[in-house]
């Protein structure tokens, strides 16, 4: 009887432990989302530097405007062959691509979301401004001196990843690095970010994504970042995409 009580207590303790663990992971991920998506809106410019395995670099430039967690327009300004190409991301996985040469917008099918975004090492999925807590179920794997280590499992079966390992800054709750694993549980990409505080918000000033299989990397450098300009929802419409 004593043994049974002990076992029950142990099981309860373990459950409680797991629950605390899960709760912690959820809380951490929510805080990450708060840091990443707490600004009401954001405008900025980005320089994208692509580096191939032989070290050769090419550069792209784009303007970004974003509102909340699910509205964004990404518009290329350079090179000339891509200038004007723009992507509008809206809630419920709705994405439009505008190609100036065709003078019309096109809905992007969800199959394109696992594809590279404009030759970068980011996929359309990676570029999606959707809170991590909505995309992933977190689990706290452990801690390091200055970071929590989270394992994120995609909630959607359509995701091209089996899991994502994210290191989160212990004090400021921004993601320091992320590792992406394919369906075969092999690490395929890793990303690192350098954050800088602009006003009251942490801004990922530099994000580097490396494709480990192809030894190809993409660095996105943000500049002219402005927060909370009270952008209207009307800025995130097909009408604006075409302007």
């Amino acid at each position: 009887m004593r043994n049974l009580k002990l076992s029950v207590l142990l099981v309860l303790f373990l459950f409680a432990g797991f629950n605390t663990n899960a709760q912690d992971a959820d809380t951490i991920l929510k805080k990450v989302d708060e840091v990443m998506y707490s600004p009401k809106d954001m405008t900025g410019e980005t320089k994208i530097v692509l580096t191939n395995k032989s070290g050769k670099q090419s550069t792209r430039e784009a303007n970004i405007i974003q509102k909340g967690t699910d509205k964004r327009i990404f518009r290329f300004t350079s090179p000339s062959s891509q200038a004007g190409i723009a992507v509008l991301s809206l809630p419920d996985d709705v994405m439009y691509l505008y190609m100036p040469a065709f003078r019309k917008e096109r809905r992007i099918s969800s199959s394109v979301k696992s594809q590279k975004f404009a030759g970068t090492d980011f996929s359309y999925d990676d570029m999606e401004a959707k809170p991590n807590a909505e995309k992933y179920s977190p689990k706290l794997l452990g801690t390091e001196e200055n970071a929590f280590i989270l394992e994120l499992k995609p909630k959607s079966k359509k995701s091209s990843y089996s899991k994502v390992i994210m290191k989160v800054h212990k004090i400021n709750y921004y993601p320091i690095s992320v590792e992406f694993y394919d369906k075969g549980n092999k690490k395929i990409k890793e990303g690192k970010s350098v954050y800088k505080k602009i006003g009251k918000y942490w801004n990922a000033q530099e994000m580097t994504m490396t494709n480990l299989k192809k030894n190809h990397s993409t660095k996105m450098i943000m500049s002219n970042v402005k927060y909370d300009q009270n952008l209207s929802d009307d800025e995130f419409t097909v009408r604006k995409l075409k302007q």
Binding site: I108, S109, S110, S111
Partner: peptide, 10 residues
């Protein structure tokens, strides 16, 4: 009309 069905653009 245009949209997406099961990942296929239609």
């Amino acid at each position: 009309l245009a949209g997406s069905l099961g990942g296929v653009g239609v």
